Amino acid sequence: MEVFNKIYSQVSSSVSSTVSQLSGVLPGNPVTREFESSAHIASAGPGLLWKIYKGSKRSTKQAASIFVFEKRQLEKWNKNDREFILETLRRGVVQLTKIRHPKILTVQHPLEESRESLAFATRTCVCQLGKRTGTNQ
């Protein structure tokens, strides 16, 4: 019983830290109204800027992946570069939303933008969806 209690306390502390981390990532983004998110499972896009979180739709409990881009990642670039990067990310999601094919990732919730982040939801992803720039992968 003692082992069970120890494992339970470790798991519950891990879950609570993940939930607090996610509440810091997605505050104010409309995606949080329709989707619950839990753990960071992967990254995607150029430079792996998109963080992918495991989640589910609140109404149907259908599994989903929630893509989040935190705008504070752009602080190291000048204003023109920031706008170019944001526009490129927005355009990529819009193009993905328009594509309908069974072998291409399906968007379940369109891109939503808040002051702190960009976010959208897709069917479940289980791997990295990009290549880090500057590495020999």
Rank of each mutant, 00 (worst) to 15 (best):
R100L: 06
T60Q: 10
K98D: 07
I7V: 15
F69V: 03
D81V: 10
E36H: 13
R82E: 04
S13R: 14
L48P: 01
H109L: 07
Q137D: 15
V25L: 08
Q10T: 10
T122Q: 04
E75R: 13
T122K: 03
S23R: 12
E87F: 11
K54I: 07
R90A: 08
V31S: 04
Q62G: 08
N80K: 15
T32E: 04
L48R: 11
W77P: 02
G92F: 06
K79H: 14
P102G: 06
E34R: 15
Q95E: 15
A64F: 01
S16P: 03
W50M: 07
S56F: 14
N29Y: 06
S9M: 09
E112P: 01
S20H: 11
F84C: 08
C125L: 09
I104M: 04
P30W: 03
S38G: 04
K54E: 08
P27M: 10
F84H: 12
K61L: 12
K51Q: 11
L129D: 03
N80L: 15
W77R: 06
L49D: 06
R82M: 07
I41T: 08
V25P: 00
T135V: 15
N78I: 05
G92C: 02
E116Y: 11
K61D: 07
L89R: 02
V94Q: 05
I66V: 15
V25K: 05
